[in-house]
Design a protein around this nucleic acid. Sequence first.
DNA 1: TTGTATGCGTTATCAT
DNA 2: ATGATAACGCATACAA
Lengths: 348, 348
Amino acid sequence: MSDFRSKQFKRPTMYDVARLAGVSQPTVSRVLSAGNAGDASALISDETTQRVLDAVNKLGYRPNVVARSLRTRRTFTVAMLIADLSNGFYHPMARAVQDVARQHNYEVLISNSDHIYENERHFCDIVLGSGVDGVLMVPIHLSSDELSQYVDRAHIPFVALAEHIKHPHIDLVWVNDHRATYEGTRWLINKGSHQKVGFIGVSDDLPPGPRRFDGFTRAMNDAGLQVDPRFIKIGDFTLESGKKAARSLIEGGELPTAIFAINDLMAIGLILTLQDAGYRVPEDVAVIGFDDIPEASIVRPALTTLAQNPRDIGEKMAEMLFERIENPNSTERRVYESHCHLIVRDSA
Amino acid sequence: MSDFRSKQFKRPTMYDVARLAGVSQPTVSRVLSAGNAGDASALISDETTQRVLDAVNKLGYRPNVVARSLRTRRTFTVAMLIADLSNGFYHPMARAVQDVARQHNYEVLISNSDHIYENERHFCDIVLGSGVDGVLMVPIHLSSDELSQYVDRAHIPFVALAEHIKHPHIDLVWVNDHRATYEGTRWLINKGSHQKVGFIGVSDDLPPGPRRFDGFTRAMNDAGLQVDPRFIKIGDFTLESGKKAARSLIEGGELPTAIFAINDLMAIGLILTLQDAGYRVPEDVAVIGFDDIPEASIVRPALTTLAQNPRDIGEKMAEMLFERIENPNSTERRVYESHCHLIVRDSA
DNA sequence: TTGTATGCGTTATCAT
DNA sequence: ATGATAACGCATACAA
């Protein structure tokens, strides 16, 4: 059997390759990095190149990237923190980031905060020591000041999907969800001439909370409507919290005739629970969501929603990041707005 | 402004801390690793410990994990390859792995193959050089022989979610989906006394393909039923491929009265397209799936399905891996079977 | 209890 | 075109 897992086992190094090929260790290094860099290719004779390559194959040599990183101070790895791996909104975003990263020969370290504050901090703590070359993140709880402290010590490029981050060295992608909420609400009101419109939001200390509630409120006021506190519920982005909001609404006696939910998962929870209680969507209660996750096309009636463009978001974040990584001296701060658009289906 | 991104910037090292504290660099190392190891704590005087810690804080020093890894040959990172980030089945699994990893002070590098062969190979290539301390993976296309070649050269523990991997050094978690399919099919047949039962599978060169088709076939035969090739369709695990299978079935003219889909996503695509074409589920066609992803509870009728236990799978894989990492000499191969159970909802 | 010296496996700067 | 040598930041054997 092989020497698997024996403590004594030692991976072949450049020295081993060099000895076998009858050259010096730095020569091996040059041969191998000629492929990457592309410029130094002429510095090595074809003959020794061949001998080295043969030795590499014979030994099954693989460069030790840890040693390389120590020397070059680059890990060719970026870290990404997203808020919820299980939320369909983030998949295309993560995928897009990985696609761009691969074009640049980078790996992506994905982490998941589950919307939990401590996890966001833990991620930043890890990142500070980990040697990654750049960071993409969706800070939900982290304030601009807290994040700034990390960035000031990390000395690597950061890109965030956020609106509330002010640090001059953090590039931003953001979504004008205030406007989207405003226009979505207005569309919803006009669509059915609704008078009583509800809202399922999230706590005010989460960044999208106040913004989207304000967009909603303004649209209501501009339509001459009052926001009725009985129809305002707070969730936490999850399906279950949407169901809970629906139960709370039903127990309250009177129902609004239309509801704006600030994400699809809660909107779907709402629909499911409303239907289980015998209400028809959209006839009794119209529902509109936010995100356009895959489940929005599965629920019946299919969910009308404000679609974000997570692929665009991920691509732009990654492109901004790699531009910084490859050009560390460009100084102006970049901010990119990714747009929303309404997708009309059957729930409103 | 800070020296952010200036090429000249140098993170403080142990030498800087040592100089500031008036001690030698190894002393700093000892102070800092006292917290981790726990044993060496008595070796340093309280006074110098304090001085060192003060210097650390003052400089904002963070250990360079790349250098540490080079020295210790441990990265405290494991890599995980899953087949599809966007498939709800894998979330609890990834989450469970991360939870276990955190208990061991490990980070998890998540990668996504998208069911693509080249990506599985790329992952293994990266892993070989990356210095991770262990690997968890879901090999879909990779054959036992191919994977074995990587493992023989990697000299780190591997754990796979698979049945077809034979290598004596790869620990396995597996699901007896042959039996689950058999029993699910039998239940389906009995439930509605069905005579014509369809099957949505995947290509034979994907490991679950033949196993589940065989389980289906046996159950049919044991019930005295013939497998009708007109009712057998091949998909690729995606919702869209389920829809396509349904369209193909509908165009075929005659429909089965019950269909077994080997995953939930295809089952849901089936239901949606069937309903759009005017068929009732389960009255006209009963449908059963496999996995119990969150969407199974969203679709109406709610999907009857064979639930896997991804949290259990992830936990066991991680536990096996860390046992190997922490005890490299234990030699016997571990194999764990994670069980399925039927969840009866409304689609069958 | 602490300091000195060495090496982990690379890349980079000199030479030659 | 290639070889000798140093350095990246840390942990550890050994000396004191």
